[in-house]
């Protein structure tokens, strides 16, 4: 009986200490074991849908100009890749132009990319070099639009930060293959509540800030959290591109042939 009482008192003491420690530093305790890569993986898993489709409207504000791009985007996951089809509805001179990408989970494997040019009724394979170029004259590069595998970067958790009222992990992503991307590193603020980024800073050589992406209007649609609005600002602040998603649908059955290059057409 004495032995049991001693065990009970000892266990109770340890339990109280553990509870006190948990309550005093609960957030850190709950996620303290997460590495930067773990957080990136959690971010990747937020969208656990098998397919999605939406309309993206982008407005580029530059000096006195305002350029508008409207795209229909469809995306589907396969066992070894993610396939994405972008069809331009605006501006008028590229209406009907389509980009098809097969991004492989094995990041050492080159993505397959095609463009369909309606005026010439021509489907043409394009290569990775184009990924670094501006996406339709916007502040986004093509590589910012397409999926990037977690292991294409090394991840470091720099700490936590409260950003506009939301507690965030502050991550730094450094590319494994520097030659394949415009960016020497990215600093990313990932919200702790939904594991989605709310801010990304893109850095070039010598640590120069190139542009900043703010994400927001977080919504839960069909059980999937996502940011419906983005704003990319150039480092000089003279050029801003906003991106807004509408008509978002997840897990809509999409025919496999939609993502075949032979099937690209008007």
């Amino acid at each position: 009986m004495n032995w049991s009482g001693s065990w009970l008192r000892s266990g109770l003491a340890w339990g109280i200490m553990a509870l006190f420690w948990t309550l005093s530093d609960g957030g850190s305790w709950a996620f303290g074991a997460l590495s930067g890569r773990d957080i990136a993986l959690r971010w990747e898993q937020v969208d656990n849908s098998q397919s999605s489709s939406y309309r993206a409207t982008s407005v580029i504000s530059r000096k006195s100009q305002s350029l508008t791009r409207i795209m229909d985007i469809k995306r589907v996951k396969t066992p070894d890749s993610e396939k994405q089809l972008i069809v331009f509805l605006e501006p008028p001179d590229v209406r009907g132009t389509s980009y098809l990408t097969w991004a492989y989970q094995d990041y050492r494997k080159d993505d397959d990319m095609w463009v369909f040019l309606p005026a010439e009724s021509l489907t043409r394979r394009i290569a990775g070099g184009a990924r670094k170029g501006p996406f339709m004259r916007s502040d986004y590069a093509l590589e910012d639009i397409f999926k990037r595998e977690v292991d294409e970067d090394t991840w470091e958790l720099l700490g936590e930060e409260n950003l506009t009222g939301a507690l965030c992990y502050r991550l730094e992503a450094t590319p494994v293959d520097r030659s394949a991307t415009n960016y020497a590193k990215k600093r990313i603020w990932v919200r702790q509540d939904i594991f989605l980024p709310t801010k990304v800073e893109y850095y070039g050589a010598k640590g120069k800030l190139l542009k900043t992406l703010i994400l927001g209007d977080f919504q839960n649609i069909q059980g999937v959290w996502l940011a419906l609005r983005q704003r990319m600002t150039g480092a000089d602040g003279n050029s801003v591109t906003t991106l807004e998603l509408t008509e978002v649908v997840f897990n809509e059955p999409l025919a496999a042939d939609l993502f075949q290059p032979q099937n690209l057409k008007r």
Binding site: N48, T164, R191, G216, D217, N220, I221, Q222
Partner: peptide, 23 residues
């Protein structure tokens, strides 16, 4: 932590680009 949650709120605190209306 993100199992499907259809009853989730329409927007979150600390959202820099929050929309005043639901999608």
């Amino acid at each position: 932590p993100l199992t499907p949650d259809l009853a989730a709120p329409a927007s979150l605190p600390g959202d820099p680009l929050a929309s005043p209306v639901a999608p």
